[in-house]
Design a protein around this nucleic acid. Structure first.
Lengths: 245, 245
DNA sequence: ATCTAACTCCCCAGAAATAGCGAGGGGGCA
DNA sequence: TGCCCCCTCGCTATTTCTGGGGAGTTAGAT
């Protein structure tokens, strides 16, 4: 199959992006991702939520068979695409990743056998609370063709990936942060100092108050955050954006 | 001052984005951000790296006076823009944030006094290891004008913000303190359980291992994360995205 | 074949955090 | 005025965490 659009004649995505912006459910995303694949003329496009807890959400054009195999084999843990994107900010061509490990080569061979394609381009996406997702295009073609394709479409792809992630975050349940009871300024200071590694004594010293007073703040913050202990409280404060470190 | 570009006649940014992509230093970013402000005809554009450790990097068109005041007053900790963007993925109009707290209103008044403008639009950006940055445009105009402006330019702004962050990450490798030594699966499990409030004993029980073994993981994770204590380690793991709660 | 890294278990002593009891002054709000 | 929240401080006892030590197996990488 030939790539539909190389340099100079990229498809107009305005309409598609608008429909993406007004998508109202995960089904819409699936429809749009298939349409996008056809417009670009690539073999596969996949949006994929990566979460170390094992939970996953994804939509895309991979065969279910391959997805299941990927999960069963635990490829998530050895996939250089995941590892590589996790350390990067900018989109990455699969060729530039490190495929030297045995497990990675096995994964690649397996993927090709399942028709994923020998080329790939993945865009890392990050949301609140450590959310991490990938937007990936794969195809079967020469290195040169792939490079032309990715270079001439990179900006559109970043935008499309961004909106996919925005919608996925919007639709995905289980991300409902409880209405955070606000912490007092002193409580925030105390929690922040603990979060950056200070002990209670050090934090108290830094704020020029007695350790006991600091303890009161921490306890108070803990109760407000509904936390079991200080570590838990700091974790909650961080993931709710109450403190920033 | 009137906005240069509203719906229908947004500036062509291709050339600017290309120069952004080929920027070779922080000075180039400063030049480009000023050019961008002039092209859009807004009062200010600022890219800044948010990190409560006190370290900050930023470039933009704010007066140094205001930047210093912001830091001195500790506005970072009370700024609804920071807190709001920290919990969102999509760009946000300042009007939609919660300015009800006294500190937030004081900040807003102060900002207006320093000529920041009554309108603002901020794009949250996230990179590896929990990096978090903001790309902000501010202006002095009516709500309607601002809405027209942001709606018609939102896509370009996302792209520009993306490339700014990419370049800033590229030029400031020192912002990634340790090369993010990856945690082992067991270490991640242990840290995750601690982050959700389990004591060491509970976590060990949950993983069906002895408390001593769990302790080994926690200690190991702590060293890998360069943390002073468990709370610090969990905070770092969270803000680097090593664990997800 | 060797080596590193991950995973598992054990003991001990000192440091730190937690849980409970207190107390009083200041500011905002009804 | 009364109420509630924020800020500040003290004491004691118990539980938990931290920082040393050592030791064995398994699996993957060189």
């Amino acid at each position: 199959m030939a790539l539909g659009f190389l340099s100079g004649n990229a498809p107009r995505l305005d309409g598609l992006i608008e429909r993406l912006e007004s998508a109202e459910g995960l089904e819409d995303l699936q429809i749009l991702i298939e349409e996008l694949r056809d417009r670009y003329g690539v073999d596969h496009i996949v949006y994929h939520w990566v979460n170390s807890n094992g939970e996953q959400y994804g939509c895309g054009t991979y065969d279910l068979e391959w997805v299941n195999r990927y999960l069963e084999k635990g490829y998530l843990r050895v996939d250089p695409v995941v590892a590589g994107c996790y350390q990067r900010f900018h989109p990455v061509d699969w060729k530039r990743l490190d495929w030297s490990s045995k497990a990675a080569r096995a994964l690649m061979q397996d993927a090709i056998a399942y028709g994923i394609g020998n080329q790939g381009y993945s865009i890392p996406l990050r949301g609140p609370n450590g959310q991490f997702a990938l937007f990936t295009l794969t195809h079967n073609c020469s290195d040169g063709e792939w490079e032309d394709f990715t270079i001439s479409n990179r900006r559109d792809l970043i935008l499309v990936a961004h909106y996919f992630n925005q919608k996925a975050l919007e639709f995905e349940p289980g991300r409902t942060p409880e209405p955070a009871q606000p912490l007092s300024p002193r409580e925030i200071e105390a929690m922040t100092l603990l979060a950056v590694g200070y002990s209670r004594a050090q934090a108290a010293d830094t704020l020029s108050i007695s350790e006991h007073t600091l303890r009161v703040y921490v306890e108070s913050a803990r109760h407000k955050l509904g936390a079991m202990n200080t570590t838990h409280a700091v974790a909650r404060a961080l993931s709710r954006g109450v403190i920033v470190v």
